[in-house]
Simulated assay, not measured.
Amino acid sequence: MTEQQRARAVVGPDYLLAGRYRLDSKLGGGGMGAVWLAVDTLLSRKVAVKQATSTADLTPDAAKAIREQAMREGRIAAQLANPHAIAMHDVALDSGEPWLIMEYLPSRSLAMALNITESLPPDEVIQIGAQVADALTAAHAAGIVHRDIKPGNILIADRGSGIGMVKISDFGISRAKNDTHEENSSVITGTPAYFAPEVARGADPTEASDVFSLGATLYTATEGQPPFGVDSDSIALLHKVAGARITPPRRSGAMTATLLHMLEPDPARRPSMEQVRQRLVTLAVGKNGSPSSVLNQPLRGADGAVPFWARRGARGAGSTTRRAERIHGQTMTGLPAANEGTPLDRVPRPGDASETAKPKTRYAPPAFEPARKKSQTPVYVAIAVVAVILLIVLLFAL
């Protein structure tokens, strides 16, 4: 048995990682690796450790790529110090495999919260957006583009002294501007439901793409589904995103104008992340309010308390895992870009005169636009024909 196979066989609860971090239980996992709760035996604190996808059965080149990706994630996340971003503590090597050692936040993701409530009030979403935008403003200032902003990567503390505080996590596919690592430009990585249109078309992700993805995430929180609807076919969804025609928001209240600005098809017309933060803070506290009252305080509901869905023990009805996968999606790699090179400045924008004058067909999910009954028109025609025939027969009879 090789060293890699041995390591893969014994990794589990109570495993001592790199001689320091004792694994406790698995917190979650996906295409970009599994996350464990562990104890740092040196500092006596709980940490979250991320295990990159196993390299045991990979070719040397593929295994090297996995290790390099983990190291890049560690280096990028370590550059960011913000109270609304999960902190990176260390990169540990165990049997030659890199593990990311991160801050542990007892929390639930925004995706999990939406499994409980299906949608959130705009006032609560504004606060979430302001805190996430604060972290992303710092990331962009450091030259870091997140590239995978979605409800599953936004965490809300659900217990302890920090209950109600919001943090963004998982910089697993982030890129720094000075990163010289080359990628295949013909494929894209991320979560299709939250892609910006230009990314779906094959353009490189930018700070403006992050703004769109945050807008799509906040849209989902208020509307209960992503702006381009739901489609289990990721390729078909990519083409919807590339078309840049969202279903107009109906529940976003005071946030609507800001949300539509973030969801502009043309990245050059979107606000910066710093402008987004300022607008959301202003919506939350008013022009003369203190930004710290929203950025440095836990979420508050209409009653002034931490919302019920953010407290440990809150449960939704029925199976939530299936809905989470259907609504929010998972990070995917190797997706082919859709409609590469199509200029976004030709795509109609919400409110454009040309769009108003000539209505376009929009994708609308069943929740917003009931399906039309195809059988109604033929029935009405048949009734009319029968009535005419009866009238003619009656006239002849008389």
Rank of each mutant, 00 (worst) to 15 (best):
V285N: 13
V281E: 14
R269Y: 07
P271L: 01
T247A: 10
Q278R: 05
P248K: 01
G289I: 12
G253M: 11
S293I: 05
R269G: 11
R251P: 00
N288F: 07
L260P: 01
I246V: 15
S293G: 09
V281Q: 10
G253H: 08
L259M: 09
P249H: 09
P249W: 04
S293V: 02
T256W: 06
V281M: 09
T256E: 15
V281A: 14
P249M: 05
T256Q: 15
S272G: 14
P271H: 05
R269K: 15
V294R: 01
A244S: 04
T282D: 12
Q275C: 03
H261W: 11
H261V: 06
L295R: 05
L283D: 03
R270E: 05
P271F: 05
K287N: 15
E274G: 11
G253R: 07
M262T: 02
R251W: 09
R269S: 13
K287H: 08
V285K: 08
I246H: 03
L283N: 00
G289T: 11
V276S: 02
T247M: 15
N288V: 09
R269L: 14
R277W: 05
M273Y: 06
V294G: 00
R279V: 10
P249Y: 04
R245S: 12
P248G: 02
R245C: 05
M262P: 02
S252P: 00
H261E: 08
T282F: 09
V285P: 00
Q275V: 10
L280Q: 08
N288D: 15
L295A: 06
V281T: 10
P248C: 00
S272I: 04
T258L: 04
A244V: 00
A257T: 12
L260I: 09
S272E: 01
L295P: 02
D266I: 10
Q275A: 15
R269T: 12
V294Q: 01
P249E: 11
A244H: 01
S292F: 08
S293H: 08
S272A: 11
V281F: 02
G289E: 08
T282C: 08
M255W: 03
K287C: 07
P265T: 03
S290N: 15
V276R: 02
G253Y: 13
L280E: 04
P249S: 15
P291M: 10
L260F: 03
N288T: 08
R250A: 13
L280N: 03
R269V: 09
S292E: 13
Q275G: 10
G253N: 14
A268V: 11
R251D: 03
G253P: 07
S292M: 09
S292P: 01
P271G: 01
T282Q: 10
E264I: 10
G253L: 11
T247K: 11
I246Q: 02
A254P: 10
M255E: 09
N288G: 13
P265L: 08
